[in-house]
Every structure is written in structure tokens, then in C-alpha cells.
Nucleic acid binder design. Structure first.
Lengths: 288, 288
DNA sequence: GTTCCGCATGAATCGATAG
DNA sequence: ACTATCGATTCATGCGGAA
């Protein structure tokens, strides 16, 4: 990254505004990694958090085009999404989106499965509970940065527990141990036998009553951020919601750029960031 | 099922021949359930087990059309498939296949994830081990046969604590919803030992215990056969390979129709069937 | 500081009812 | 007929307070 980039790109901020508009104001090739969980399709509510199914692809494509522009050549874009059912069918807009994004020049590199261990309850005569979501990986070129060692897990049964419990409690423990960084911490871990994970992630959704609901658990962006970035890298979340990705960046010593359209969510995200800083003795991350 | 159907459809057989050709000889609407794991796409090997990627959709569509014809109106088709990577990208033929099959009139009802707990080992610089496959559910109409009780799983350990004491809030919460449903609700939970599964299946890739290698484990077709059929129903596998689906049918007292193009696999499947019958004291399943 | 235990919650989905 | 809203269904988990 160059000085020029930094002079044009302000990092560690939650920007309030329309995602497409804000993205257009960002410089080319300034972002190391993009993680986002965009608003899901919803025919019923025509609010911010509900894009009609039929308009979904059309709505997203200009955004993915800008994301491709701002992403560095060796960067990665992870899109967390799951299609809705309508009229008893899985809708196909996510499939269409993948095909259209490839026409934009994106490579569809991989599809990770987020297995939601505590999925929503319910019972229906024609289907079971939906316990998984897609984490689609897109890249600009075949060679991209990937730091597999940062997400290695201990071998054996408790490795699954370890991966599953990478949430709030874990965060505190890690911070209290080391200030130098999460990846280092993990690699120094007690056992010497570590194994690479697979493309299936077993994470629970957080369900505590904290005044707001995170649409995805802290550990989801954290896992991908560790996998695709190094410290001081810049992470973009164009639909940051309540700020989960930003908190993950703070913990992992990455820079973040968050965009959020709704004022209430923006305030919530900024508050989360301030709480994090307060919890770390007022020491905010050193800015370049 | 009518007598006519049976006179035209011979069940409990492994038919050797080209799948499309054989399918065309079957009567309309005679099959209760279709499960198959078709030959994977592969550009390099031009063998039976390798359909070129670019031809895959074109190759499969006439087959899926015939499958739709032979399936009963309330039947289900489960397609176990996973796209290959080529040039560092996930290929898109499965996505395209879903879209094209919908144009044929199929409903894309659901996508189950088969999580392969002991997936193939290996390491690559740009991806992790692939630990999941798609099990795509297609139907002819919104209302289809589904026997959810047949695949219920033991309830989690949490229930022991949870049900040990009935707290005040349980009562309040129930009352707030349905008013009169409290007693009934609690009594249901107290006796409950099994719950419904989700759309994520955790199965190992272990094969049938006969020393024959199968591309998918016995438990995968068995699970779906139990879910979508009753005893005496007819199950079709148009790419039956070494006969795993047939063995599952024998165990579950379902009729099977298997199709296999290669003579060697056909012999293997027939041998598996014979071994099964020998292991059951020569009593083959009663034929109608 | 640990462990234990109660409890509210969740990117859900269907079918019935209402406009 | 067609769309919008609402109630019913249901289970594993993290969190917070208690022991």
C-alpha cells in the first residue's frame, strides 16, 4: 500500500451512506479483503433490509462491480448469503448472481459452507430446518493471498469445539494474552499438531440479548479475515450492519472500512467500536 | 400403483445399458423416488466416468427430462453432485443445470448439504479440503410425499437439563402464545426423545461393508429413501454404479430399479445383491 | 476464578386469515 | 385471484447470574 492510497482512503471508519455511492468514492485497488453479508432478499418488506427477489441480481451487480474495482489484484471477496424459499421452492437469484458476477470478470473460486449449529426452530411438512448458508469466495485472479496457517485447528475432537467457540469469550482471552496478534497466538498454541480445516465451518449464531442482533456471529468474519489478511491490512464490509466485522478487525489488528445505510445501525456500529476501545483502556489502534 | 404399471416395469433388477435409452423404455409415473450420483464431469479423462464439463448440462438434460416423466407426481428426485474445480475455479455447470431443469418444469425444492466428515486428504495453496457435496431436491409439484418421522434423530443432551425442571417462564412464554396450550406442550416435550434433523447431513464416506468401493456411502441413499418412500415403494437409480442404492432398498424393503452402463459395474452391483440375499438366508424380497 | 444452570433468542417457513 | 400479515411450530446455543 502506498502513501497515496492512505491519503485518499480513510480507514477505521464506519461510513454512513448508500453502499454504491460510497464505494464509488473509494480509490482503485486499495482493499485487501472484502467480507459482507448483504441484505437478504425479501418480497414482503420494501425496506432497507429487504430487496425484492426479482430485483436482487440487478441491485447487486453494480455493487459487485465497484467491489472488484476497489479490491487489490490479489485480494479476496467473501459473500455470505442464502437464498430464500418462496412458493415452496428455493429461489435461484444467488445462482444467477454467481453466473453474472463471473461475466463481470470475477472468478468463483470456492464455496464455503457455514453450518449453523443452532439454526432456527420450526417444523414444516415439506422441509427441514435450514441449517446452512453459503460463503461464496470470489477473486480477481487465480493467485491470491491466503494465510492458511492462521486458521489451523488442533487435531482431535476438541478442535471442533475450539472453532465453534471463537466468539465473545474467546476474544477476551486472546486479547488478555497477547497484544501482538491473533495469528501468532494460534500458531504458538500448546499442541504442535495442527491440521488445516475444511471448507465446512461449524459455527453457532449468537443469541444473547445485547440490544441488537448480529446477523452473523463474530467468528464468521474473524475466521475469513485471519485466512485472507495479515495485520495492518484493510478490510471492507459494504453492509456492516451492527459492526461485527469492525470488531473482528480491531481484535485482529486489521484496518476496517465499514459502510452502512441506516443511521440507527451506523450508530450501533460506532458504539460497538467505542465500547471496544473503552474495554482496551482507551488505547485505540495506532493509525498510520 | 396399478397392475399395468407392474406388468410394464420389472423391479428389483440392475439393468445394463445406456441410462437415457433404458429410461425411455420405462412407463410414465411409475417411480416413487429417484436417487442418483451421476458420473462427475471431467475434462481430462474421456471415460464413462467423465463427461466433459462443457457438455455436462447438455448431456444431463435429456436424462432429467425422462426422469421427470417416469417419476410419480408426488415423488422426489435427489441429485447428489458437486462441481469440480478447473483452472482454480469452481465450475458452474451445476448451477446452470439447476436453472435449466427448472425450465423443464422441475421445482428446485431444497438443497441438502452432505457434510463428509472424513473427506479426502490433501493440501493446496489456494483452497482447503472439500468436505461437502450438494444433494439437490427436485419435485414435480409442491405437494410431495415426505415421511419425516422415519429420519428423526435423538434429542441433544441439553434436553436432560432443560426438561428436568419446568420453570415459571416456560409457562409464561407458552401462555403468551397460545393461552391454553401449556399442559399439552409440556407433556409433548417431556416424552420427546427424538427430534427432526436439519438439511445438513453429517455422514462419513464409509462404504457398504462388502469391500466394494462406492462413490457415496450406503447411509446417504438410505437416509433419503427412508425420508421419501414407504415400504414396497419403487426407487430408481439411473447411475447405480456398484449397487449401493440397491442394497439400501433391500435393507429397507423397497423395490429398486438400477441402471448401469458399464458391464463391470453391473456385475459388481448384481454380485452385491446376490451377496445380500445369501446373507439373508437366500430369502429374496417377495415380489409382487 | 471456575462451573453450573436457567433462559431468551434466532437472515425460518408454512398455512390460514384478512384486505 | 392475489397479496400482505400473523400465528404456530421448534431446538441448540451463548450469555449472565448463581453456586
Amino acid at each position: 500500500m502506498t502513501i497515496d492510497t492512505f491519503s485518499a482512503l480513510e480507514v477505521d471508519k464506519i461510513i454512513q451512506g448508500d453502499s454504491l455511492t460510497v464505494l464509488r468514492s473509494l480509490p482503485d485497488s486499495c482493499i485487501n479483503f472484502i467480507f459482507t453479508s448483504p441484505p437478504y432478499a425479501d418480497n414482503r418488506k420494501k425496506t432497507y433490509k429487504g430487496i425484492p427477489i426479482k430485483e436482487y441480481v440487478t441491485w447487486f451487480l453494480p455493487i459487485s462491480s465497484e467491489l472488484k474495482r476497489v479490491l487489490k489484484a490479489d485480494g479476496t471477496f467473501i459473500l455470505n448469503i442464502k437464498e430464500r424459499t418462496e412458493d415452496g421452492e428455493r429461489q435461484t437469484y444467488v445462482l444467477e448472481l454467481i453466473l453474472e458476477m463471473r461475466k463481470q470478470g470475477w472468478l468463483w473460486t470456492e464455496e464455503y459452507i457455514w453450518h449453523k449449529k443452532n439454526c432456527y426452530p420450526g417444523r414444516w411438512p415439506n422441509r427441514f430446518r435450514d441449517a446452512w448458508e453459503r460463503c461464496l469466495q470470489f477473486n480477481k485472479q487465480k493467485n491470491f493471498k491466503m494465510y492458511q496457517e492462521a486458521v489451523m485447528v488442533p487435531i482431535g475432537d476438541w478442535s471442533k469445539k475450539r472453532l465453534a467457540k471463537l466468539s465473545e469469550t474467546d476474544r477476551i482471552r486472546d486479547v488478555s494474552k497477547v497484544g501482538s496478534g491473533f495469528g501468532k497466538n494460534v500458531s504458538n498454541w500448546l499442541g504442535k499438531r495442527f491440521v488445516y480445516p475444511t471448507n465446512v465451518l461449524h459455527l453457532s449464531t449468537e443469541c444473547a440479548n445485547r440490544g441488537h442482533s448480529a446477523s452473523f456471529p463474530y467468528s464468521l468474519p474473524a475466521w475469513f479475515i485471519r485466512l485472507f489478511t495479515q495485520e495492518e491490512d484493510i478490510v471492507l464490509d459494504p453492509f456492516i450492519g451492527s459492526g461485527t466485522s469492525a470488531i473482528a478487525c480491531l481484535d485482529l489488528n486489521r484496518h476496517y472500512v465499514g459502510i452502512e445505510a441506516m443511521e440507527s445501525y451506523t450508530n450501533l456500529a460506532r458504539e460497538s467500536v467505542n465500547n471496544w476501545k473503552a474495554g482496551h483502556n482507551g488505547h485505540s489502534k495506532k493509525l498510520i
